[in-house]
Amino acid sequence: MAQRTVAIGSSVGLHARPAALFVEAAQGTGLDVEIGRPGEEAVDAASILGVMALGAKHGEEVVLTAEGDGADEALDSLVELLARDLDAEG
């Protein structure tokens, strides 16, 4: 199982637009990706409601996990996405 930890880059946290972009990217991997706080129960990264309900704030660390072929590559791209300030990008 692949696993990554990343701090949320978006200045207003993982809500609305950043959450939508992340969920679409997670769906695009075709893998079962989960996201959660370290040590807490994770949620399905393909669920916009689940991801928004996490309420991850700017700078807060989250753990991503995925299984299957290409899991490492998939998580690397998602980590890169979360680390960016998605709000600042237009």
């Binding site: 609305a16 637009r17 939508a20 969920v23 679409e24 949620v43 399905d44 393909a46 669920s47 916009i48 409601l49 689940g50």
Partner: peptide
């Protein structure tokens, strides 16, 4: 458009 698209994403949510 982006607001309506994000709302569509909610309607399609597996968790819901």
């Amino acid at each position: 458009a982006p607001i309506l698209k994000a709302t569509a994403l909610i309607a399609r949510d597996k968790g819901l």
